[in-house]
């Protein structure tokens, strides 16, 4: 799998020290209720069993679990802005009901 880091995102991550026992992670989170939405984020989180790693060079290594892999598009772009922090181009909403 390949992802693309914008210069702004790379700059942010280069200076970032991941706390002890944590890893840099791209994570997909689901939210339900009236419809399901999947939100992708970048965080420093605990390692999970069966994580795969994605080396983006310059010491930036993302951990991704199998669930997140399903929702991350090949070539997805990670950007960073002051207002929104990290954004990943693949979040989506879908309809269904509770």
């Amino acid at each position: 799998m390949k992802i693309r880091l914008t210069d702004a995102a790379r700059q942010q991550l280069t200076g970032f020290t991941v706390p002890e026992n944590r890893v840099l992670r791209i994570d997909a989170d689901m939210k339900g209720g009236c419809g399901i939405s999947v939100h992708l984020s970048v965080e420093a989180g605990e390692p999970r069993r069966h994580d795969t790693t994605l080396d983006c060079g310059g010491g930036i290594v993302f951990h991704i679990d199998r669930f997140t892999e399903r929702y991350l598009d090949e070539g997805a772009e990670i950007d960073w802005t002051k207002e929104n922090g990290f954004t990943i181009g693949s979040s989506f909403d879908s309809g269904c009901t509770v």
Binding site: M30, E46, R48, R49, H50, D51, D65, R66, F67
Partner: peptide
């Protein structure tokens, strides 16, 4: 989730 499996 820590074991790599989700609720879904």
């Amino acid at each position: 989730k820590k074991l790599g499996v989700r609720t879904l």
